[in-house]
Design a protein around this nucleic acid. Structure first.
Lengths: 185, 185
DNA sequence: TACGGGCATGTTAGTCACTAACATTCTTGA
DNA sequence: TCAAGAATGTTAGTGACTAACATGCCCGTA
């Protein structure tokens, strides 16, 4: 691990620790940088915004590939739904303490939640591309991607507040519910 | 219209005009305030953030009531879907120029999009309440609300970029698509 | 009409996220 | 060992937003 990588990791750990202790607004970037033993400029060289030190998860490519892998004859919503479940199994243990803390933090503060949605936008674009490249009309792909990401994110924030299930269990039951919802017509 | 109301409206009109001319980042709050003939403090007394001068639409209660009105025996997703369509008809002409400009602006800039999502959160809570009060389990209501708002917002941003339909037409076909998606199992 | 109280606004002086420009110190390969 | 080049530091900003306090304006009432 190079010097930069090491600094980056220290910044992230100290940031999350401090945000948990005193809240996101209760800690300045200066303080995070000081705790990691660097100046505030170094913080911003590693993370473009204060929020991004909490939210830096690059799931997108895995998700896109998993969706692209589904049977093209299935409806769009179903392909994304199955892709999400497949991708979930691929990822190496997202149930660790650090990830849980990040999700809790993200759910706890407006400006962090807002960034989560902005990240989702990138993910939605990946999903839309995976679908349209296999024949789904663009608008349909857009709606399906929005619906799944909306449901998933709502579930994630709900989970962060209540935590009465594992992360994986929550994702699975969210997708199952979404599946069952359409079944009544 | 009182003095305050008048100031507020001037601020909003000047803000949207300037944001369109020079971009959201190309205009400072100072400049918006100056254009409206007030100081920057007055701006912040009327709008809590720079973003909120663009995003101040209180649809939520109408939507909540429309959803609550639907047949409780229908599945959650379907009740929200129908509620959205009903509420759309209730609202007095949301297809006017100002609204269109606001949506275009909102779609055009990351920090504005982020606020849209944060507003959606309030709307989702209203939807969840309307559903749970008529017997839908909480988690199911959460997923359904997230899915519909996710689909709707994705459609809205897509529309802002392409504008090859009316707003109302887009909302209707988005809801129809969402409806048709579940139909295949 | 004068006045008094409350509401809308102004002034000033901050804090904090974030950026640009330039200087300094490590680190690494030839 | 000695340059690059990478990583970091320093300094001086800009701009969103806040707190505290001062001023001006509009209203009903005496």
């Amino acid at each position: 691990m190079g010097r930069a990588e090491n600094t980056r990791q220290r910044l992230q750990e100290e940031a999350i620790r401090l945000f948990f202790e005193r809240g996101f607004d209760g800690v300045t970037v200066e303080e995070v940088a000081a705790a990691a033993g660097v100046s505030h400029m170094t913080f911003f060289r590693h993370f473009p915004t204060k929020e991004s030190v909490v939210l830096d998860d690059p799931y997108d490519p895995i998700l896109g590939e998993a969706v692209a892998r589904q049977d093209p004859d299935l409806p769009a919503l179903e392909r994304i739904r199955r892709g999400v479940l497949d991708a979930w199994e691929t990822v190496d243990d997202p149930g660790d303490a650090m990830t849980r803390q990040k999700i809790e933090l993200a759910a706890s503060h407006p400006s962090l939640r807002a960034r989560v949605w902005e990240n989702n936008r990138r993910t939605e674009e990946v999903l839309i591309r995976a679908l349209t490249e296999t024949g789904t009309p663009r608008f349909e792909a857009t709606i399906a991607a929005g619906a799944v990401m909306g449901a998933l994110t709502a579930a994630l924030f709900d989970w962060a507040e209540r935590r009465d299930d594992t992360l994986g269990g929550m994702v699975t039951s969210a997708m199952e519910l979404l599946d069952a919802m359409g079944a009544s017509r």
